[in-house]
Amino acid sequence: MLKINNLTKKFNERTIIDNLSFEVENSEILTIVGPSGAGKTTLLRCISGLESFDSGEFYLDGKKFNPYEDTGSESVIGVVFQDYQLFPNLTVLDNVTLAPQMVLKQSATEAKQSALKRLSRLQLDGKENLYPYQLSGGQKQRVAIARALAMQPKILCYDEPTSALDPELRGEVSRIIKGLKQDGMTQIVVTHDMDFANDVADKQLHVVPVK
């Protein structure tokens, strides 16, 4: 379970997140919705440790942690970026196996085997030797998911997962997210797409811009 208490984030003097508290149960899907400028992405960046915060406490399964400062190899939170940010100089397989090998010290064969399994479950069989530029948007997103999962995160975050995709692919994304829930993954989805949010959410967090 992820629990956040009294999170506040300011950019200079402008308050973006004001004293926000919420919690996500294990293998639950939380969607964070709200108008642009409400700080959805900033919240996600705070949770995933990409952004410092001014005050607040984070607890994971009752244990306090600081996502911004705790950057050890014990990976707790994975991120699927809006623009995926695959590494263009690496093949699909290397994108997925790089971090497990370098950070988790998995052997090359071990990392490759679990990567191929993951890619296959995400319908990316036969794509492992392609480079990101050779993939469609949906495929890139699935590689990004596989890459994040390879680090065995406790929580997986998505930033606007449907914004760069064709409408027909929305259903595909929600199927994947629900499938991961079955595997027990806790997921946080930032989106402004209400239909999509309502489709996947177990719990919804509405954020509004701070006045």
Binding site: S48, G49, L50, T71, G72, S73, S75, I77, G78, V79, F81, Q85, L86, F87, L98, A99, M102, V103, R147, A148, M151
Partner: peptide, 9 residues
């Protein structure tokens, strides 16, 4: 860099 960071590289 951010992608690498969340992967703990």
């Amino acid at each position: 860099y951010e992608a690498a960071k969340v992967l703990r590289l």
